[in-house]
Design a binder for these strands. Structure first.
Ligand SMILES: [Mn+2]
Ligand SMILES: [Mn+2]
Ligand SMILES: [Zn+2]
Ligand SMILES: [Zn+2]
Lengths: 139, 139
DNA sequence: CAGGAGTCTGGACTCTGTCTAACCGCCCGC
DNA sequence: GCGGGCGGTTAGACAGAGTCCAGACTCCTG
């Protein structure tokens, strides 16, 4: 009996709740994201999942991350022009992005008030609102 | 005598104000951006500059856009995970991003009030604040 | 005219992400 | 048990954005 509870049954349940068939690879990818609760790139997910021994291909990591986004299990964070990060925190929130280190930090949404949002162009609906505060080490 | 005034002297002056030596290629790249006053990708700049006949290499377009950003002549807009857009509008402002068409539209900064910004991590200074409203065609 | 700093360039290269066609594994009907 | 079917996985080829490099060009200066 492991000291800490095995997270896999919880992850399996979470995948099912989102209409995602829980395969071995999908559970491991979800575990990489939800165990750390940090912002990981596809490459970092691939490395994390295959850390002990090769389990999952690059194609499956990309396919699965796209599926997770479609199903609302994780969201994309677009701050670095060279790669997408995946965020297991689905609560409304914003981000600090350190342009020197690449570090991404959450900002709780209710700490920030955004007022006077303009009306959307006709026939359009909002699909998301991203607020990114770019920071660097002090002058 | 051309019907409209030649924009090149004005562009030359603008480059000099930013400490950028005004070469032929740099003037043409600046013209592509400031004549249109829209958000262009590096590829679109390359195409615009070479529309009549080949004038400027891909390497020079990338080098020059990076130089323009360093010198504060234009800014990057990071909304599309596959490419960077360059924005000649340096006034503080935000963006609509249509996730279906890729269209980027400006939102004047003074229409939006952002309150309760959290204190920055210690030793860090703000390098920029980006607000992106992702939109798509209505349900 | 020689030297040198700054700039420009083709093309090779890297990296992220996509695609394809084969393959695997599980379930289900027989 | 046996044969299909079907969703899922895979290696590796491929595509596109962006970088790097070594050579060439431009222009100024001594
Ligand atoms: Mn890129
Ligand atoms: Mn990319
Ligand atoms: Zn986050
Ligand atoms: Zn803009």
């Amino acid at each position: 009996m492991p000291h800490l509870t095995d997270p896999r049954p919880q992850l399996t349940e979470r995948l099912r709740e989102h209409g995602i068939g829980p395969t071995h690879q999908r559970i491991e990818i979800a575990r990489a994201l939800f165990a750390r609760m940090t912002h990981l790139s596809a490459d970092q997910v691939l490395a994390a999942v295959n850390a002990r021994h090769a389990e999952t291909s690059k194609a499956t990591v990309y396919n699965t991350l796209k599926l997770f986004v479609e199903k609302g299990l994780v969201r994309e964070v677009i701050v670095d022009p060279t790669k997408v990060f995946y965020d297991p925190n689905m609560a409304p929130h914003h981000h600090f992005y350190d342009v020197e280190t690449g570090e991404i930090t959450d900002i709780e949404a209710d700490r920030i008030a955004i007022g006077g949002l303009p009306s959307l162009p006709p026939g359009k609906v909002a699909a998301g609102l991203d607020l990114i505060i770019r920071i660097r080490s002090g002058a």
